[in-house]
């Protein structure tokens, strides 16, 4: 049972949540008590941060080492023309503080790396992956799995987005069960070289924020063991199930117990000698 502590302003602000059976005062309190780390304050992070803040997620950590560039503004709706040259975590924090006074923002102007990932993830309940590169994505999967922290993955390219939820508590599959390693350089382009429809990360980031809220409130069916693919060109959503791989180098029987020996470069592959609890 969650101790309820909503004041009169909060009863008004969150009234559309409070009247829902699936949320109610208890669900709202769970949101207010939760700590979520958003990795990236770009295309995916923008809508995710805005909606998680609006929903009353109590503490939002935002980690990003970039500054706002003009080419970001076609999709990164957290930032404005006036923010160009400003660290993204600063403009993101300013937006949240103006929008949602209940939310404590923890801006972390650093790049998530192998050296700091464990420490950063450790103080949050859930991680939302809004990064823009494979090494960060594989690093987050591995760290979150070892730590037991749920991870909501989202990624976009041109007209297509992918979303899945990794929940180590449910013993479900991890991202490496789906994709053991990253493509070789150039095989699957990123947004900087291949482009992305500006609206697309808005939709995909909202899918991710939805998953985070569901995990916090322990309601609905999260995308654990399911990869959602959204094709904005055909306006289709497909969900493909995937199972845990018993030979997965992270969550499999002989999976890693540390990221020490893994190189998060190129394909981020895990050699046999890293696995097996060595």
């Amino acid at each position: 049972m969650v101790a309820l502590d909503l004041d009169a302003t909060q009863l008004d602000r969150y009234s559309r949540h409070l009247i829902m059976d699936a949320v109610g005062p208890e669900g709202q309190q769970q949101l207010l008590n939760s700590r979520v780390l958003c990795v990236g304050a770009g295309g995916l992070g923008s809508p995710a941060i805005e909606y998680l803040a609006a929903a009353g997620v109590g503490t939002l950590g935002i980690v990003d080492d970039d500054v706002v560039e003009r080419s970001n503004l076609q999709r990164q709706v957290l930032h404005t023309e006036a923010d160009i040259g400003t660290p993204k975590v600063e403009s993101a924090a300013a937006f949240v503080e103006a929008q949602a006074p209940d939310v404590t923002v923890e801006p972390i102007e650093r790049r998530l790396t192998k050296a700091n990932a464990r420490e950063l993830v450790a103080s949050y309940d859930i991680v939302l992956d809004g990064s823009d590169n494979f090494p960060t994505r594989f690093l987050l999967n591995d760290v979150c799995w070892l730590r037991g922290t749920p991870l909501v993955h989202g990624a976009v390219l041109r007209f297509e987005g992918q979303v899945t939820t990794i929940d180590p508590r449910a013993d479900g599959p991890c991202y490496r069960c789906l994709f053991p390693s990253a493509p070789p350089a150039g095989a699957v382009p990123g947004c900087a070289t291949a482009g992305v429809l500006g609206v697309l990360p808005g939709t995909v980031g909202c899918f991710q924020a939805t998953e985070v809220c569901k995990l916090i409130m322990e309601t609905g069916d999260p995308l654990v063991g399911r990869l959602l693919s959204y094709n904005a060109a055909g306006m289709t959503v497909d969900t493909v199930e995937y199972a845990a791989n018993p030979n997965c180098p992270v969550c499999g029987t002989n999976g890693i117990d540390s990221i020490e020996e893994i190189e998060y470069t190129e394909t981020c592959a895990i050699d046999d000698h890293c696995a097996g609890g060595s």
């Binding site: 990236g40 590169n133 990624a155 699957v188």
Partner: peptide
């Protein structure tokens, strides 16, 4: 039968 690659953009 389904075939898919990962994507990484954000």
């Amino acid at each position: 039968l389904a075939l898919f690659p990962p994507v990484s953009g954000g």
